[in-house]
Design a binder for these strands. Structure first.
Length: 611
DNA sequence: TTAGGGTTAG
């Protein structure tokens, strides 16, 4: 410390460029000159990215008792905020006498940028208590913090302050307010703010579109994107990323292709965000050939590009290609991250590559230079891999040996595996764990009830259902959608809401008759009610994906595949049904369910009936 | 002396 003290003093006397060389060579006592503000400032500048040096400067500053201290502490504080050391930044802040309001703002910004939203809102509260006026620079970050904390009432209160300080028509504050309400799911409020904006600029449109996509309202995002075009506002790369991401969510290949053409026409092909969004759109629309040729074409690729394409192959069931690309990625010197490994593990999982998956898991965690600690999602992936391939006991032991507390995702993977393998002993036990962990989640109850139904244990089915009723739980309604002529058509089980319903049901009836002739037997165990056989068949024959496929057959041009998106997992019977349809009609049917793709061609599914 | 929008998974 003593040596450093003199080093610093020496540095302060010398121009910055020479000082670092001298820092290492000096070894004698230096006479102590007066320290000037300029000298401190230049030292702070040259040390701004070295926290330890900054801390030592702070110590030195404390001993000097300079009258210029406040402004120097301000500089130190700014450096620590930029470095993300909010603990030290706070210590400096608390040392200051009456910090100016921009410092309050900076501190809040620092907290928000470092995911410390509670601290950010606490500082805002402190500002109010001691009467520091917030301004247009304060609110955007406080609103972000409220959104992050999912604190609706806190957010509404801040909104009231925004109005009180006359800032509700400030474009930036208003945009942040709007984003916050979308994130709360308060779309009406968000839309009101958007519609009544005096200056509805490109950023406001982009913010709304992106927020819609991020909160699962991809359809609304597409609607706004089209509206934006009609309003004569030209999209930029940020708009495009949002719109493509919406297409990826919805599996809309036609709209996605149109946007892709816009990217080419407008010369946005060099933007890495845009290209990654394009890759993801093709992958999530089940078109890996397009995704791959694009991937080969783009010059600038980052870890997200690689993770996207690897994950794309994984969900499309092309595990070998996913794993090949992973080694190519490493050959090219691109460091995989934890998301890349999720793709790799899921590729193994979807193909039942148990020992390979285990190797990758070890490889990820224990290689010294990589040192990516497995997160809860990786553990869930491993449980899925082991469980799905039938190693239920091992999966259970794996959970028991986890160094972190398993969450509902991990146990949920095991419950899913128990359902697939009809393990009626382990299944109910795992379900009980889940009912404690996530009492409000209906899907775990549904899985258990499915398991009992398949075992024809109707009393137990009824028990589970009673429990669900008691808790006011409702199953998530299953739906399937098909894109035709750039429009999205949505179907629910048994519904007749579509204008072409009559033809759809006629096609369906005809198909089933033909299929039965060549060996199709409806798997009535997929229907959970304890009802008569015939009624079971009727319910089964009108599952949403069957309606969607039937509609696809009459509306999608024959040279194109029929692309169906389902919000839940495809059921056994619909899987068999789709195989038969692809064989009879010679049409390619692509179904994207909650977890992965099924490409049906001439009676065979790409998942090899393992899903 | 500061402020708004973007990609992978979950």
């Amino acid at each position: 410390m003593l040596n450093l003290y003199f080093s610093l003093r020496l540095k302060l006397l010398l121009p910055t460029r020479q000082s670092s060389a001298l820092l290492h060579t000096h070894d004698c006592t230096i006479p102590s000159p007066p320290l000037t503000k300029q000298a401190f400032t230049s030292l702070l500048k040259s040390s701004s990215s070295h926290p330890n040096q900054l801390k030592q400067i702070h110590a030195l500053l404390t001993t000097t008792g300079l009258s210029i201290k406040n402004s120097l502490i301000t500089q130190l504080l700014t450096s620590f905020i930029l470095l993300g050391d909010m603990t030290y930044a706070r210590r400096l802040f608390d040392e200051m006498h009456k910090p100016r309001s921009f410092l309050w703002n900076n501190l809040i910004k620092g907290y928000v940028k470092n995911n410390l939203s509670i601290e950010a809102t606490a500082i805002f509260g402190q500002m109010q208590r001691i009467g520091v006026h917030p301004d247009q620079f304060t609110f955007p970050f406080v609103l972000k913090a409220c959104a992050e904390l999912d604190d609706l009432w806190g957010g509404v209160e801040v909104h009231a302050h925004v109005v009180k300080f006359g800032l509700d028509f400030d474009a930036i504050v208003r945009t942040e307010l709007m984003i916050m309400y979308v994130k709360f799911g308060e779309l009406v409020s968000a839309e009101y703010l958007f519609e009544s904006m005096t200056l509805r600029d490109l950023v406001a449109w982009n913010a709304l579109i992106a927020a819609y996509v991020q909160t699962g309202h991809a359809g609304k995002a597409i609607w706004r994107f089209r509206q934006m075009g009609s309003a004569g506002i030209k999209p930029d790369s940020v708009t495009i990323v949002g719109a493509l991401s919406a297409c990826a969510h919805l599996g809309c290949l036609e709209i996605g292709k149109q946007i892709d053409q816009f990217v080419i026409d407008e010369g946005l092909e060099s933007n890495v965000f845009v290209n990654n969004a394009r890759l993801d759109m093709y992958a999530k629309c089940g078109n890996m050939d397009m995704a791959r040729s694009l991937f080969n074409k783009i010059s600038q690729r980052n870890v997200i590009s690689w993770s996207t394409i690897i994950g794309g192959y994984a969900i499309n069931g092309e595990s070998e290609k996913a794993l090949d690309l992973f080694s190519k990625m490493e050959d090219e010197g691109v460091q995989p991250n934890h998301v890349t490994f999720l793709g790799v593990l899921s590729a193994c999982s979807h193909a039942g590559l148990v020992s390979k998956g285990k190797n990758y898991f070890e490889y990820m965690a224990w290689s010294e230079d990589r040192n990516i600690q497995p997160r809860i999602e990786h553990y869930a992936c491993m449980v899925d891999l082991l469980g799905r391939s039938g190693h239920l006991e091992e999966a259970y032991d794996f959970i028991k040996s986890m160094p972190i507390e398993p969450d509902s995702g991990v146990w949920g993977a095991l419950l899913g595996a128990c359902t697939i393998h009809q393990n009626i002993v382990l299944g109910p036990y795992v379900a009980d764990v889940l009912f404690d962990l996530a009492p409000e989640t209906a899907s775990y109850h549904v899985l258990l009830s499915n398991m009992y139904a398949a075992a024809e244990r109707w009393d137990d089915v009824e028990k589970v259902r009673r429990r669900m009723r008691k808790k006011g739980m409702k199953k998530i309604a299953a739906y399937s959608s098909v894109e035709s002529n750039s429009e999205i058509h949505v179907f629910h089980g048994g519904d007749r809401l579509h204008p072409q319903s009559e033809s759809i049901y006629k096609v369906l009836e005809e198909l089933i008759k033909q299929m039965k002739g060549i060996g199709y037997v409806p798997k009535t165990s997929a229907v959970l009610h304890d009802v008569e056989m015939e009624e079971k068949e009727v319910t089964l024959s009108t599952h949403s994906e069957k309606l969607a496929i039937a509609f696809g057959l009459i509306s999608v041009r024959p040279e194109y595949p029929i692309r169906v998106l389902k919000n839940l997992r495809i059921c056994d019977d619909c899987h068999t049904f789709s195989k038969f349809v692809s064989r009879i009609t010679k049409r390619e049917i692509i179904v994207r369910d909650k977890h992965r793709f099924h490409h049906f061609n001439d009676g065979v599914c790409s998942c090899k009936d393992f899903w």
